[in-house]
Design a protein around this nucleic acid. Structure first.
Lengths: 355, 355
DNA sequence: ACCACCGTTCGAATCGATTCGATCGGCGCC
DNA sequence: GGCGCCGATCGAATCGATTCGAACGGTGGT
């Protein structure tokens, strides 16, 4: 037999019907031990390694696949450990449920199609969007058209999709209050990209009106909540160390009288870049300038320094997404979830100079 | 209609047979423009968003899925950018072919099952193993039993699987010759883990006999090829910065007379850790100790230093894997592939002290 | 006017498994 | 000894699409 054996082959070899053979593998339904053994022996004999997943999937209508839409090319998206740790928590949670993760790149090039072909045609039971998009996100629209339920991480409160997020606004507010209490009056901030166009550079007030994505907006609002009006806003095109360094050069090059005494970055990668960039400018951290981040990453290459940062439970967030997926597949309509964050004071912040 | 519409629904709404309706979507086979348009209109009317992938997959026997077995938990595996960039190159190449990547964690916990359930049961047309395993790898066995073709990255030359690798032995030899020419006589090395048990620490000769994985072996052999017999071998449990720092503490704590004047690390992450660890010990790099790595990563947080390293074409390796997959799916038996590497001299190596 | 041919469309088989209702056989109870 | 029940097994329908050979209608040529 040149073809791989099917359940029918095994059944006839074992002298039973296909339905009985199916029972022997699935274990659902009554079957005599002797019969099951006979089927399994026949299977081993024929080199049959279990039911073909495609047949099973068609019948059950389930593919067992969770599509994860990454917001960018992998190499960029996964350079920030946040995405990776989240994915890890997700995989750990849904693995035991028999679900697997299909990676779907976000919009790759400006010239290319708006959505990856996988979004249009791949088999999946549910989709997850890291870095939740906006309401008119073409990916979101395509998934809705296909009737695929969506879980959005850190998105707007959208109708028809479930979101899992954190209290980033409150966390930043707490951080800002900490800096305020340390005497900082000139605070600059480095933000995550405002939208898919990913501009980089100092953002004036007009630009700040155009924030499409919710994370940079909420974290900016957190500052204001604590009464901290930033003296400079730098929009990073991605959450990467080099963009943090560029931000430092842009924000900290002025004379000491007007130079910010503290910089709040919206991610730890950016904050680390700010620290390195500040040092390149000859500034001491934290004596000349305090730097704080967001995420609570472990950055061994920054040792012996540790960032002052807002710690978010990343793996737990991934696990929460996993549980939400489970609920959605069970036909439930889970509520949006917001996880708590906490301030961790490290060695990169101290009292403002002269305060 | 509570159910989602099927092709049959669309066909009857358009007044044609299902076979004709299928032709309208697939474009394979002759169909009158007017008829196709009628079918597409009916589909739009019913909210039918294209053929159900599960039905198509069963019929064609293809799932369009490439299973990628990551050698470890994601959060660890993807902390080294090498895996991520490789995956990125792979995704870029197979995406246009209509293929998607299913992430499959490697052996997670020592107590757990030897292979992830996805390896046993997930639908996939071909599997890729990052960090190729050994001959008796249970994952490899399971895939062989299922008849799923396998492409191994950086593995042994195995029968029945295609491997894609680089000339790491030659690259390390070139690097070692460079150090030798700089006058270094006491060279230590930090290796990648020898096998799945991932021990960490100084490796004596007995341990060096037990190298199960091929990468650490070949890169070690590269040293010997250049006539460099390492005065110390430190086995890292993973390719992470902190393990490099630990290696530096273990290898470089002795008195200057016996201390190695150069350290060759088998990855850039390890090398970066060695640089940081050496500095913590009060040693200057490269004046007191030269450090070299492998991979050719861009490490902005090491600025202004740049590692002396062996550059491998990571994205190109991923693209090669993609092309090999394409060939395998076309029924061909592509040959093993070995990509070239090149030495890049940075600021972390210089002449040996006193040489 | 008939035939051959070509471009379209249709019917039916097929992919590989799951599942429900029906059937079969054996056993216990009256 | 017969009836009923229960556990085990079987048949057939079903999931949703693709594909191949057959049928069909219309046109052009003789």
């Amino acid at each position: 037999m040149s073809q791989r054996p099917t359940l029918a082959d095994v059944a006839s070899a074992a002298g039973v019907s296909v339905s009985t053979a199916s029972l022997a593998f699935s274990g659902a339904g009554p079957i005599a031990d002797a019969t099951r053994q006979r089927v399994l022996d026949a299977a081993a004999e024929l080199g049959y390694s279990g039911p073909n997943p495609l047949g099973r999937q068609l019948r059950s209508g389930r593919s067992g696949i969770v599509g994860v839409v990454v917001g960018d090319a992998l190499r960029r998206s996964f350079r920030d450990p946040v995405s990776v740790q989240l994915l890890d928590g997700l995989v750990d949670t849904i693995g035991p449920l028999g679900l697997g993760v299909l990676l779907i790149p976000g919009p790759t090039s400006p010239g290319g199609p708006a959505v990856d072909p996988l979004v249009e045609a791949a088999a999946m039971d549910v989709a997850v969007m890291l870095w939740g998009g906006t309401l008119d996100d073409p990916t979101l629209e395509a998934l809705a058209r296909r009737g695929i339920p969506v879980v959005v991480v850190e998105g707007h409160e959208l109708s028809g999709v479930v979101t899992v997020g954190i209290d980033d606004r409150g966390g930043v507010a707490e951080l800002a209050a900490h800096l305020r209490d340390l005497g900082h009056r000139r605070v600059a901030t480095v933000t995550l990209p405002f939208g898919p166009e990913r501009q980089g550079g100092l953002a004036d007030l007009a630009r700040r009106e155009q924030i499409a994505w919710s994370i940079p907006r909420r974290r900016l609002e957190g500052l204001l909540d604590a009464g901290v009006e930033p003296v400079g806003v730098y929009e990073a095109p991605a959450s990467l160390v080099e963009h943090g360094s560029a931000a430092a050069r842009a924000l900290l090059s002025g004379p000491p009288e007007t130079r910010p005494t503290a910089v709040v970055a919206q991610s730890d990668m950016l904050a680390a870049g700010v620290v390195l960039g500040a040092r390149e400018l000859g500034l001491r951290v934290p004596e000349d300038v305090s730097v704080a981040g967001f995420d609570g990453l472990d950055l061994p290459w920054l040792a012996p320094d540790t960032l002052t940062t807002v710690v978010q439970p990343i793996a737990e967030k991934g696990a929460t997404v996993g549980r939400v997926i489970q609920a959605v597949l069970a036909g439930e309509h889970p509520a949006d979830d917001v996880l708590p964050v906490s301030l961790r004071v490290g060695t990169t912040t101290t009292a403002a100079p002269g305060a």
